[in-house]
Each structure stands twice: as C-alpha cells, then as structure tokens.
C-alpha cells in the first residue's frame, strides 16, 4: 500500500470541509499512513480467490414491507440541532446546489 501523501490528506480535508493547518497536515499525513498500512495487512491474508466483500454476512434481498412506522415528533427530530428556525434545521450558508 503506497503511503498517503500530504496533498491527498489536504484534498480529503477539503472534501470533508475540515480546515487543517499546515502543521496539522504535516502531523496527520504520516499518522493516516500508519493506520492504512495496518488495515492493509488484511489484503496479505486474502488470496486471489477471495473477492472483496462489502458485508459481513452472505445475505441478499433483505427487504422491508412498504408500510409506515412511527416518526419522530418535530421536537424530537430538532432536539439535537444547533439552531432551529421555522421548524427546520438552520445551517450556515453553503455554496452548493439549490434544493
């Protein structure tokens, strides 16, 4: 597994909207490399005949019936919101798509 570069960490931080200082990038890049290398040791165990899996159980087609179940109340739903306005989650201005 190639080392994760400082530039890649900067790119990921930007995607995740996390503002990292140069000092933090210098510190985090090697740390992330170590973590990835540890996880990558799994690929040493799997042979070529073992495809990557996305789920721990060999299940398919687990479906719900199309029926309604109780919702949260708006008060419950908004309880953890940092700011609420007009029964909606109030968030800082974003540069993005219009909904």
């Amino acid at each position: 597994m190639p080392e994760i570069t400082r530039d890649e960490v900067a790119h990921l931080a930007n995607l995740a909207r996390i503002d990292l200082s140069d000092a933090e990038l210098d510190q985090l890049a090697p740390q992330l490399s170590v973590i990835l290398e540890s996880v990558a040791s799994i690929s040493g165990v799997a042979g070529d005949d073992v495809p990557p899996t996305s789920h721990a159980l060999p299940l398919t087609n687990v479906f719900r019936e199309d029926v309604n179940t109780p919702c949260l109340t708006p008060e419950q739903a908004l309880a953890g919101a940092p700011a609420v306005d007009q029964q909606r989650f109030s968030v800082p201005r974003i540069l993005g798509e219009e909904a």
Binding site: R88, F89, V91, R93
Partner: peptide, 17 residues
C-alpha cells in the same frame, strides 16, 4: 437572508428532511 434570498446571497439555509 442575503441580498436576493438566492443561494449565493444566502446567510443561512433552513432544511426540511
């Protein structure tokens, strides 16, 4: 908020899920 209420001038967004 903001000048036009459109996204580029918006102060904040109110979200309904």
């Amino acid at each position: 908020g903001g000048a036009t209420g459109r996204i580029h001038g918006a102060d904040h967004s109110l979200v309904d899920y």
